[in-house]
Every structure is written in C-alpha cells, then in structure tokens.
Design a protein around this nucleic acid. Structure first.
Length: 419
RNA sequence: GGUGGAGUCGCCUAGUGGCCGAGGGCGCACGCCUCGAAAGCGUGUGAUGGGGCAACCUAUCCGUGGGUUCAAAUCCCACCUCCACCGCCA
C-alpha cells in the first residue's frame, strides 16, 4: 500500500512511477479526489458524533420535561451520526479499494519499460567453451539417477518431479550451504508455515495482479505460498519492532500454479509447480533500505561464487517489477544448452509498501512510529540444480561437484548410474 | 470433531448499561531526595485516522465483525485465537 500522505504532498512522484511501470497515471487524480472527499466526510462525522456524545451525557443528568426534550434531540442526532459515519466509511472503503490496486512507487534510478528493458549491471565469469556436445540438465539428471519427471507426472501431473538419489542429496547440500552462509552472516534461521491466511497473502501483494498464480484452499480459506517471503513478512504483522535491521533466512517449499505459462519451459525442472527455496528477508529502517538491498545482492553473489557459476546481474525495469517491489535485481546464471542466462536469484526492495499493509512499524529518532522497509532475496532454489548440472558436466557424463558443496554432499563427482 | 473456560494499555489486573473521557499495580521515562545508588516520594506513560507551523484539539480502538440502545468494555448474535479435558488420527 502506498503512502497517501506522501501522495498528497508529491503527486508527481506517483505519476512518474506509474509511467515507468507502463501503467495509467490517471489513478492519481482519482485518488486525490477520493481522499479529499473522504477527509471532509470524516470531519463531518466527527463533529456530529462529538455533539451526540455530549447530548447523551446530559440525558442521564436531566429530569422530567427537560429529559424528554434532550432524549428527542439525542435520537435525532443518533440517526444523523449513523448516516454520517456510513458515508465516511463508504468513502474510506472506496479509497482503500482503489489504493489496493496501486503498485509500489518505483525507486529513482530503476530502468523504465518492460520485461526486455532491463539493464545489465555486471557480468561475472565467462560461459564455458565445451569441447563436447553438452547435455541438458534433464538428460544429465536422468542418467545420474537424480531427476524423475515421468513418475512426477504419473503421481501429480505435469510440472511435478521427483528428486531421487544424488539429486535429492544435491538439493539438500545446496540448501544447507545457503542456510549455513546466511547463519554465518548473522541471519536467524526459520522454517515457516507454507499455508497462510488471506491477510498475509494480501499484505505481501500476491493477491493483486498475480492472484491466479497462487494455490488457494477454499475449504480452509488458506493459501499455499509461492515464496517464504509471505510467512516471513507476516511474522511481524501488527507489531512495533525495536532493534533494526532484523534478518531472517527461511527454508521452505514453494508452490506456483504457473497459469499462463503453458508451453514455456516445459522440459525439466526449470519451471515447476513445487520447489524448495532458501530466502533471505530483512526488516530495516526505510532510510537504509537501498544499502540493505545492495547487501542482499552481495550475499546472493557470494552464494553464486560458491557454486562456481558464470552469471550476470540485471536491474529489472519498472514494468517487470512485482506489485510490492520498488526496485529489483536479478542474478541470472548461464545455461549452456539454452545458450542464455536464466534467473537464479531475485532481490526486491519493497520499501514500506508491504509493511504499511501488514502494519509493521518501528520507532524513529523522534519516537514516532513509522512503517519499516521490507526486502527479500533468493539464496538458493531447486532451479540452481539446472545450472550446476549443465555447467559442471564432463565429457564422460559425470558432473563435478563445486568445492563448497562437497562438504555438504560428501562427494566430489556425480557419476552416471545404470538404468 | 465434542464439551467447558478465557481474551481489557508493554506485562498483571479492576471493571455486569451513563460516575469508564477505562482505575490500580509492575515495568519504563523524567524529577525530588543522595557523595553516588537502592529504597521512598512526585509527575508522566498506548495505537490509528483527521485538523493545525506548533503546543494542542478531535474521532476511533477493551480478540474480530455485526446488532440492540439516546448511550455498550458491560446486553445479544456470529466468528477467531488460546487453555483444559474427551474422541479420532499420526
């Protein structure tokens, strides 16, 4: 949720943001108008209510005829107050509904435009030159006995899979490495619930434009999370925090319907309905949010270096940001058989957008409460297995295990197995 | 799933229709006292929206949402959460 007071003082900022996202800036006029009407309706209600209260008090003290006169007046006022309150509530509701559709204000410096208008900030490492024909991750995964798509489909349908044998071990090792790194860096480890109430889903901004991506269990009115960002943001819902920053790292399964991605990445485990992820999450003073964002990016790069992958960092354009994000950096690893970079991590600065909706505050120097900033960033996911297998494969069909992973995996090479 | 009990300011608690514009205690902050501290004494002590440059004013908030009433923490209805016990399952 955007800040209405900030909107009143600087409406041009939201207009510019809407344009950077390629969205309608006429909403700004509507918001200002509704807000104006809401405030005057509220004032009207308040003064009538104040009078009603004082007349009500005098009823209890009055006697005889005077009491009857006051009672009549009080009844009359009660009716008026009821109407005034309803009107103020109606306008407030209307405003809230409209505000809920407005995405976060884009950070200065973020590229304008859509999906293809990202800016490459940095390229780290070089794609490897193969002296043999590289296999794709699924072919490797099958010959290593690591990935079983067919049985995944048999049991659960398309875009489901089993990680088997060394595949399961590889994921455990990868996610443990990620958890370990974050804990070393001072994060508090968490294993959160993956089913959440509507407030948590709504508050993090996932029930807006992307609601069709989310699994919903209507019998219990719960949602399956697409990322642990949701339970991590919900963790401090309706709280006033003392010390900032607070950094959490969570391991969770993630669930995505992948509606509207029919035919995209249908092979292997690049785009699936269920995967595991280690996610960093930070609550901090909005003044420090940009620096914190860069820190999260550094920690992602630290992790990518450990698995020895070539990658690039992109600054995602306004139109491709999620509802809650003001700025987003993705790290994309090189995938040899696709001859292109694919997203492995994504870190978003949500400024105070989620916190305002979830009512997560802190006390600033003036001891006033203000919404905190929330930020999130990926540290490892199931998809990383794709890049690890493909980039570290060897001519004989085996896969070299990056050194940092060896300690967690207990082996240096993954060997093909007989069927 | 069933039965019973409970949810009031950071914490504990008082409060069964107008004296609640929520009292007390703890904690916290400031002050007095003290060489310094403790104890003691005094003062203050929430959130959210609106108005105002400001001090301040105002409305709302007693788990949540409705309702009754001129007037609700208090009465009524529904729901949520927690605790205890029972049943079922792991």
């Amino acid at each position: 949720m955007i800040d209405l007071r900030a909107l009143r003082t600087d409406p041009d900022r939201l207009r510019a943001s809407q344009r950077a996202r390629g969205e309608d800036d006429a909403v700004v006029e509507k918001l200002l108008d509704l807000d104006e009407r809401r405030r005057s309706a509220l004032s009207a209600f308040e003064s009538q209510r104040a009078e009603q209260k004082s007349v009500g008090k005098s009823v209890s003290r009055a006697q005889g005829d005077e009491r009857q006169t006051l009672l009549d007046r009080a009844k009359e006022l009660a009716q008026q107050v009821k109407e005034a309150e309803a009107e103020a509530q109606r306008l407030d509701q209307e405003l809230q509904t409209l505000v809920a559709t407005v995405p976060n204000v884009v950070e200065d410096g973020a590229p304008a435009g859509g999906e293809d208008d990202f800016v490459v900030l940095e390229t780290v490492g070089t794609p490897r030159a193969f002296d043999f024909e590289p296999k794709d991750h699924l072919e490797l995964g099958e010959s290593l006995g690591a990935i079983d798509m067919e049985r995944g489909a048999k049991v659960s349908g398309s875009r489901f899979f089993y990680l088997t044998g060394v595949g399961a071990q590889l994921q455990l090792a990868l996610l443990n490495l990620a958890m370990d790194q974050a804990i070393q860096n001072g994060f508090t480890p968490m294993i959160p619930p993956v089913l959440v109430k509507p407030e948590a889903m709504e508050g993090t901004g996932f029930l807006g434009a992307h609601a069709s991506e989310v699994y919903h269990l209507p019998q219990d009115e719960l949602y399956l999370v697409g990322t642990s960002e949701v339970p991590l943001a919900g963790y401090h819902m309706n709280e006033i925090l003392g010390d900032l920053p607070r950094r959490y790292v969570a391991w969770s399964s993630c669930f995505r319907r992948e509606a509207g991605s029919y035919g995209k990445d249908t092979r292997g485990i690049i785009r699936v309905h269920q995967f595991d992820k280690v996610e960093m999450f930070s609550y901090c003073d909005p003044e420090n949010a940009h620096e914190e964002h860069l820190r999260l990016l550094e920690w992602e790069k630290e992790m990518l270096a450990k698995v020895e992958l070539p990658y690039r960092v992109i600054d995602v354009a306004g139109g491709d940001l999620g509802t809650s994000a003001a700025r987003k950096y993705d790290c994309e690893a090189w995938v040899p058989t696709q001859n292109r970079y694919r997203e492995l991590t994504s870190t978003s600065n949500c400024t105070d957008f989620q916190a305002r909706r979830l009512s997560i505050r802190f006390r600033d120097e003036g001891a006033r409460t203000r919404p905190v900033a929330t930020l999130n960033g990926t540290l490892a996911t199931t998809r990383w297995i794709v890049a690890i297998l493909e980039n570290h494969q060897q001519a004989d069909g085996s896969v070299r295990v990056p050194q940092a992973l060896q300690r967690f995996l207990g082996r240096e090479v993954l060997e093909p197995v007989a069927k």
